[in-house]
């Protein structure tokens, strides 16, 4: 749910990066954080284990102030991907305005992609969020690895709603910005409706 303050002329939106464990959600928002101008970003928060696995969530606030009159603030969150953190994932989806589903393109991780998508649908249902109505982008990450599934297979199995999708190598920043721009565009578009 976006929050609009007409006094300070601010719009706040929440974007969640969802996907199976080790698919590159944190890598996505870390890349964005590292490449954004200092004046446009706040502090990045990472709640991770000692081995850098996300434990609860990562958070990056981004401010866009060159919009006519209004300042838009995107709050980017990642979810913990591992199966055991189901309860935490649900908490992070609360009040979500847009979702980026980061899939792992490797063949052996495809079952994890499908399980996580089911888990996401279940959680959205519990918040009464209709996926047809929700800004959503798919990202097929790790395209540089040797054992990846063809994009057509990933698209057929995951992107059942024919939403915009992107191939990515998040560690090199390939596809990261395109994904972020598309989800931001959709979130703002929905705001205008």
């Amino acid at each position: 749910m976006p929050f609009i303050n007409f006094a300070t002329k601010e719009i706040n939106c929440k974007i969640v990066y969802y996907g199976p464990g080790l698919s590159g959600k944190t890598t996505n928002i870390k890349w964005i954080y590292d490449h954004i101008k200092p004046e446009n970003k706040g502090e990045m928060i990472t709640l991770a284990t000692e081995t850098e696995r996300t434990l609860f969530f990562d958070f990056v606030p981004i401010e866009v102030s060159n919009v006519k009159g209004f300042k838009v603030r995107f709050h980017l969150y990642t979810t913990p991907g591992q199966i055991i953190y189901q309860a935490s994932r649900k908490l992070i989806l609360k009040g979500v305005d847009g979702v980026v589903f980061v899939a792992d393109s490797q063949e052996e991780r495809h079952d994890a992609n499908l399980d996580t998508l089911d888990d996401m649908l279940e959680n959205l249902k519990e918040y009464d969020i209709d996926i047809e109505d929700l800004p959503l982008v798919f990202q097929y990450n790790k395209r540089d690895l040797p054992n990846v599934l063809p994009v057509e297979v990933l698209r057929r199995d995951l992107n059942r709603w024919n939403r915009p999708d992107f191939e990515a190598v998040a560690t090199k920043g390939i596809g990261v910005l395109e994904t972020f721009k598309e989800i931001s565009r959709q979130v703002l578009q929905k705001l205008k409706k």
Binding site: I4, F6, I11, H35, I36, K37, N40, I62, V64, N66, V67, K68, G69, F70, V72, L177, F180, K181, S184, R185, L188, L191, K192, K193
Partner: peptide, 18 residues
């Protein structure tokens, strides 16, 4: 609707990045 009072047409995300 409150959103008609908001003009978010000309958002340019490219300017955000270095």
């Amino acid at each position: 609707s409150v959103t008609e009072q908001i003009d978010v047409e000309d958002i340019d995300l490219d300017t955000l990045f270095e």
